[in-house]
Computed example of a mutant assay.
Amino acid sequence: MSGTVRRPVPAGRSLTARVNVGADTWSMIWSLVHRVLVVNLGLAVTNLPLLVALAVVAQPWRYPVFFGLLAVSIGPATAAAFGYLRRAEDDDRAPVREYFRAYRRNFAAATLRWSAGLALLAVLATDIVLLHDAGVAAVLVPLLVVTAVLVLAALVLLLAMVELAPGLGVRAAVRVAAWSAVRRAPLSLVSLALLLVAALSVNQAPLLALATLPGCALLVVWVNSRAALAPALPVVPVLRTVTGAESGAD
């Protein structure tokens, strides 16, 4: 007759594993969730016509002019998100009204920069389509694609500078954005990849994707943009990342 030997449980050790998370960690998590939800709400309200059109039209790329005009609203909405995220660094639970205050404050500059960038991207996209089957396509098309990526990366940084350096002139801002996009190319590419994933997700499932992805993507893009612009903007001496770590301009 054999018996089962039970080993005693050491004192202080529970039979079930527990996840112990400190109060500061929970506070940071809920702060990030709050920021994402506010940004998503602000983006939904300020881009409502575009979202409705995307929900109704199955193939938006067939109507480039119509959706290009609707896409103008993305610029000031993104600049407002950056403004809100900057405000949230001082107030972890910054209210929704801070987003719309940033929207009003940055509307004119962000709309001007975003509209000019969209126009340039439209020209580049048209050239790529027209030259796709031409004999010089092997040389010109890759060059145009790289140029379009650089323009888009610089455009994102220009929107961040609406909040970070509002007193900087347009020409100087363009030079700083282009230089920073090239110098910190990995950060720019990560930001563009996240924005592309968020945009494609919203196009496929507007309600579900809009509730989660854009705010998360813009949160990372904001941190990346500040890090990319830090060496060129000495007027911003200290940059705080999402986790609270600080990095100065090099």
Rank of each mutant, 00 (worst) to 15 (best):
Leu120His: 05
Ala209Ile: 02
Pro166Tyr: 08
Trp61Phe: 15
Leu219Gln: 14
Arg240Leu: 10
Ala55Trp: 15
Ala116Phe: 09
Ala110His: 15
Val52Arg: 12
Ala230Glu: 06
Tyr103Ile: 00
Leu208Val: 01
Phe66Trp: 12
Pro231Asp: 01
Pro64Lys: 09
Pro10Ile: 10
Gly117Ser: 08
Ala71Phe: 09
Glu246Ser: 01
Leu143Lys: 08
Leu159Tyr: 11
Ala11Thr: 05
Ala230Gln: 06
Asn47Gln: 13
Ala232Gly: 06
Val19Trp: 07
Phe107Trp: 00
Val39Glu: 01
Ala119Pro: 10
Leu150Asp: 01
Pro142Trp: 08
Ala185Arg: 10
Gly75Leu: 08
Met161Tyr: 13
Val170Thr: 12
Arg87Phe: 13
Asp127Cys: 07
Gly248Pro: 13
Glu246Thr: 06
Ala23His: 15
Val123Ser: 13
Pro237His: 08
Met161Gly: 09
Ala227Asp: 13
Val129Gln: 11
Leu187Cys: 09
Gly3Pro: 15
Val182Trp: 10
Asn106Phe: 11
Ala137His: 07
Phe82His: 04
Leu112Asp: 14
Ala81His: 08
Gly22Ile: 01
Ala160Lys: 04
Ala80Leu: 02
Thr243Ile: 11
Asn203Trp: 03
Ala80Asp: 03
Trp222Asp: 15
Ala138His: 05
Ile29Phe: 08
Trp26Met: 07
Asn224Tyr: 03
Leu194Ala: 00
Ala137Glu: 03
His132Met: 06
Ile29Gln: 04
Ala17Met: 09
Arg6Phe: 06
Thr16Val: 12
Leu54Met: 14
Trp114Thr: 05
Asp24Gly: 11
Ala23Arg: 15
Arg62Val: 02
Leu140Ile: 00
Ala23Pro: 13
Leu70Glu: 14
Leu189Lys: 03
Asn20Met: 03
Thr147Gln: 03
Ile29Asp: 04
Pro206His: 04
Val156Tyr: 01
Thr147Ile: 02
Val145Gly: 02
Ala211Ser: 12
Ala53Met: 15
Ala217Tyr: 12
Leu192Met: 09
Thr243Leu: 14
Leu41Tyr: 01
Ala198Asp: 03
Pro8Thr: 06
Pro214Met: 00
Met161Phe: 11
Arg104Pro: 10
Ala198Ser: 04
Arg97Met: 06
Val202Ile: 06
Ala55Asp: 15
Leu168Arg: 09
Leu144Val: 03
Glu98His: 04
Trp30Pro: 02
Leu200Ala: 12
Val190His: 11
Ala173Pro: 00
Ala134Phe: 05
Pro60Leu: 01
Ser27Tyr: 04
Cys216His: 08
Pro76Val: 07
Trp222Gln: 15
